[in-house]
Design a protein around this nucleic acid. Structure first.
Length: 113
DNA sequence: TCTATGACTCCGG
DNA sequence: CCCGGAGCCATAG
């Protein structure tokens, strides 16, 4: 039926966009939601990230909230894992927040067009 | 079916 | 940006 296809559609898109995030760059839940056409569905993007553990190679650590705060860090195995992953990519994280976030921000709506 | 929840965001102060 | 309040939408129970 078309409903099972429809159900995985949004999550699948989120995963695709997440995989398109370049190394050493970060984006926001709202940016992904906006790219998918539902700017208001930022929380759902968070849900997709929460369920992204079923998928492999999903760089969920590159997705932060609009201020660059690592709101999802507690959902990683280690509390410092998200920070470590970002810093390993050259992104400075201080007090659970990305330093110079605007400089690393990658907007799929603009980059992917 | 309905209610509650949340890895969010926008708005006004 | 900080703070409090409201809106949004898919999932879980």
């Amino acid at each position: 039926m078309n409903d099972n296809l429809k159900k995985s559609d949004f999550f699948d898109k989120v995963y695709i966009v997440a995989l398109e995030i370049p190394y050493g760059r970060v984006t926001t839940y709202g940016a992904i939601a906006n790219y998918l056409g539902s700017k208001k569905s930022a929380r759902v993007v968070g849900w997709a990230m929460n369920a992204s553990h079923i998928q492999e190679n999903i760089p969920a650590h590159r997705v932060v909230n609009r201020t660059g705060l690592l709101t999802g860090k507690k959902h990683f195995f280690g509390i410092n894992l998200m920070k470590q992953l970002l810093e390993s990519e050259g992104i400075k994280v201080e007090n659970d927040q990305v330093v110079n976030f605007n400089n690393f921000f990658w907007d799929p709506y603009i980059e992917l067009q």
